[in-house]
Design a protein around this nucleic acid. Structure first.
Lengths: 225, 225, 225, 225
DNA sequence: AATGAATGAGGTTTCATTCAT
DNA sequence: CATGAATGAAACCTCATTCAT
């Protein structure tokens, strides 16, 4: 029985908690189509199954914590941009989005797989607390966004995030590259699905934002990949 | 052992197949948060568990068939509109969308739950064939759409459908009403999530289309609910 | 995968159900100190783990069913005696008791292990229904007993069974032969526990009955083993 | 990490040991239907899980120690009565029994739950030593009892204790009030199980003793509750 | 001595799928 | 064709025990 180094200090424990989330995320990146079992996650973190339950009350709550980490990191970055000194336009926001959301491989897999899935077996109070934390964060970001886009009516900033988020997640589900099909995707009939997800999402978001903010839906100034 | 009337003629068999899909759909409508088990579906169709496997090679493929039926019915309706005699604008398309997609409760639950989920255990050829059929249908609809919206560049009609579809599915996941929270959703901090899905989706689609077709993102002429 | 002969007819199913109870009982006889796992019971019955759940909704309910079978068989035998043509005295009742209760190896092990243990995880309605069935059976036997022991005040016949039962179970727990101690039990200090359970239980019951029925607590007419 | 004051002196250690037993007993009183986990017991004693293993080699042996404490305290009280100056009759002994055994809520729960259960994983020598200590104590009490009940044949005093003990434990298992059934216990079919345990046990013991000592099974002189 | 983080065997239950009837 | 009994691979979670700190 090989026993892992113990996390005694609170900081160490937090680190280990994060390591478990890292492991779970890695499993999602590797196999976006399935939710790893608890033992797999534990093994990936170099820990034993039971140890996971020292850090999370249940598997579902571990996944919820991972999801929250994703969301919060994204909005931290958004807020850093919006509260920062520089000018903010669609491209700036999209840049943050691309980095923290679109290109984070585990993010969308978890998000789309666990919407609703997660809120089933999770204690209601836990689920509500999660929703409240996230809701307030998004509300803040929405308000901040309105400061930079004067055409946004008050209260619609939050909608921009909501709709954009939905579009990103939805498109990912439609288009996310599926390696298993490999060369077969080159058949002409499948052209439709062999799209460049990142490019598409940018175009779609630009359209959406242009509709919502009445800015011109001009094409990106440069190829943005 | 009560034995169901046997389906001998091909037409009877098709009918029974559809009955199974109907049953599966009904289960989704009733419990959008979980995938019914095979025996539940069979029982709901008045058949026995084993019989399902006479009509579908696996559970996953049954769900895929249901999904395909959804998609095809929607696009049939879209094509009927686009190929019909009348004028076509956003509102007309949205009306079809509302009826065949947004208000079909089982549709979105299945779609969001099974994107990717399904492609896992499904034989590659089956999955590809499905994708090809759907892809061609969407391509046709896209071309037809371009005839009615002259501002759409060639090849972008299909994108309108793709992006709209993504937006609808994504928003549903974010906002679809979750009965289990009940009164708790009235807390002010949760205001953000207590939205009117149908109204939001119309607004979001209007914004997206306005961006994509350069039509004016004007509000609906009348309250559209 | 070796598949067991299928039980299709209701009679076959009941037989298989009984076979599972037999298997569970056999495990108790072999290892009275532990409750066998579901797989062990299934394997002992020549079935797969999952099959057990076709016949019992849960492990606990299987054990409860076994317990009920024990109790019912015992009271059937008692009723056969009490309703029979012959005269009935303590010795006659004890003889039935010895055969169906004291010498049934799995009976007492299960009973003492599962009193209270079982009623924890069992649906309340199930537990109540069980109690009601058993309660009525004992009440019947109590009334029948009063017919044969005129000194029993009305309503006390049932108490005779209750107290006797308690005495038997309690004594078994104190004295049931524990093979693991083997020769060590011969140490003089352990003389107290190296009793003859069956003989003791007879003496104790005789004392109890003599007190309850005011019959003479005379020793058995002949060595009763 | 809050570290408890260390127990260095032997007296302190014994005190801590007793505190653990107190805690375990308290858990039994609170939840007679389940055996508390080691960490629950430790927490109830204000100690950490690992500390338990400084005082007891295993959980089972801790429970055995608690059981032994119960038994010994009871027999101490019995001996105090029997060796005391006053006259001794059934009522006097029953009074001690009621106080130290019948009304000790944790006592019977532990006893019935752990008979046999405990002797499984306990080293044989430990189990034997326990049995020997208890055996000698009971033997002493039995002899003392014979001094007060001249009708008891030599060597039968110990049997009175053994059988009484069995009756008390057995009846408790049958009748101990089960709160979870609540109002449902008022159904007429369940009348049988809705007995007054303490009253019943007195009546049963009186019958048993009357049979064993040939004293008259007269009812208690006054309502004994 | 005291702690509590880490372990992992062990147990119950679900359910997609097979196949004898 | 239709049935549903049988299967057994997963999966989650608990908790007694160990041992580094």
């Amino acid at each position: 029985m090989r026993v892992m180094q113990r996390a005694v200090a609170d900081a160490d424990k937090e680190e280990r908690r994060q390591a478990l989330l890292d492991a779970a995320e890695a499993m999602f990146v590797e196999h976006p189509e399935r939710v790893a079992s608890v033992s797999e996650v534990a093994a990936a973190a170099g820990l034993a199954k039971g140890t996971v339950y020292l850090y999370f009350p249940s598997k579902e709550q571990m996944l919820l914590a991972l999801h929250e980490r994703h969301v919060m990191r994204f909005f931290e970055a958004v807020m850093a941009l919006l509260d920062g000194p520089g000018p903010v336009d669609f491209d700036a926001v999209f840049e943050v989005t691309r980095k923290h959301l679109i290109r984070m491989p585990g993010y969308l897999a978890l998000t789309s797989r666990c919407f609703g899935l997660m809120e089933r077996e999770i204690p209601m109070e836990t689920a509500l607390a999660f929703k409240m934390r996230v809701g307030q964060t998004i509300a803040l970001a929405g308000t901040a966004l309105e400061r930079h886009f004067p055409t946004l009516a008050p209260g619609t900033g939050v909608l921009v995030f909501l709709h954009s988020y939905a579009l990103i997640v939805g498109l990912w589900q439609l288009l996310h590259p599926n390696e298993r099909f490999g060369a077969a995707m080159n058949r002409p009939e499948l052209r439709l699905f062999k799209r460049d997800y990142e490019h598409d999402v940018e175009a779609a978001l630009r359209s959406l934002w242009s509709g919502m903010t009445a800015i011109a839906p001009s094409p990106p100034r440069k190829k943005s990949r």
